[in-house]
């Protein structure tokens, strides 16, 4: 796949099965975020394709089954926390698939669950960075989508919130979901496959490994 006229990576093949987290690691600038953005359908790959097996609606693209949890919070400071969340709930199409069960929460429940229930009626502008992060995370709980794409999910979270996030991620996995996360810090998750991206000494040498967990 290409980024800004530069081939970021080539010949990358992997598969992740239900209930598994794929942890993408590697040095800065190697293309972890680009990989996630490609999976999210935001960047078109130069060649190759993405497949989701066992989806109930095969005509839906992979990214329509995915939540993208990136660096930006996608919150409107003028709207209250609840309004932000309710909008994403009704706007994002749910993507139910067999073999994936998740406890879908109501927006208020999700806020309570993440410990920011008291901010529901406050405009998002008044929230701290950690609170904004958690509000953004709540988005993943209210619309059921089996695939979570997470770019540095633990940034700007304190230890307690991080533990809660890991609980959530483990719940998601045990419900049959898939997580693909790019991170520097180790994540304590139940079933993990690692994908380590590193710069190749020989440019354009495709090296790939396939692994089913």
């Amino acid at each position: 796949m290409d980024r800004g006229g530069r081939r970021v990576f080539a010949g990358l093949t992997f598969s992740v099965s239900a209930g598994t987290a794929l942890i993408v690691t590697g040095p800065n600038g190697v293309g972890k975020s680009s990989l996630l953005r490609t999976l999210a359908g935001l960047v078109a790959p130069a060649e190759g394709d993405l497949n989701l097996e066992g989806a109930s609606q095969p005509d839906m693209a992979v990214h329509e089954h995915a939540h993208y949890f990136g660096h930006q919070d996608a919150l409107k400071p003028a709207l209250t926390a609840l309004e932000n969340l309710t909008f994403w709930q009704s706007f994002s199409a749910p993507a139910p698939s067999p073999g994936f069960k998740s406890a879908v929460m109501k927006p208020v429940q999700a806020l309570e669950f993440l410990g920011i229930g008291h901010t529901a009626r406050l405009p998002a502008a008044y929230l701290s960075a950690g609170q904004r992060r958690r509000l953004s995370l709540a988005r993943l709980l209210i619309t059921p989508r089996p695939l979570w794409l997470m770019d540095e999910p633990t940034s700007a979270l304190d230890t307690a919130s991080e533990a809660r996030l890991l609980d959530l991620m483990n719940n998601h996995l045990s419900g049959g979901g898939i997580i693909i996360a790019a991170t520097h810090s180790p994540l304590n998750l139940s079933t993990i496959v690692r994908l380590h991206l590193e710069t190749a000494p020989e440019p354009m040498a495709p090296l790939s490994q396939e692994r089913d967990a």
């Binding site: 800004g4 006229g5 530069r6 081939r7 970021v8 990576f9 080539a10 010949g11 990358l12 093949t13 992997f14 942890i23 590697g26 040095p27 600038g29 190697v30 293309g31 993990i192 496959v193 690692r194 994908l195 380590h196 991206l197 590193e198 710069t199 190749a200 000494p201 020989e202 440019p203 354009m204 040498a205 495709p206 090296l207 790939s208 490994q209 396939e210 692994r211 967990a213």
Partner: peptide, 22 residues
């Protein structure tokens, strides 16, 4: 393209991937 390649010598254009169980 040549300039970009020259700039990214430290981090060449291709990534290699290895996957193993944790």
């Amino acid at each position: 393209a040549m300039r970009m390649r020259a700039a990214s010598v430290a981090a060449p254009a291709t990534a290699r991937a290895t996957a193993q169980p944790a």
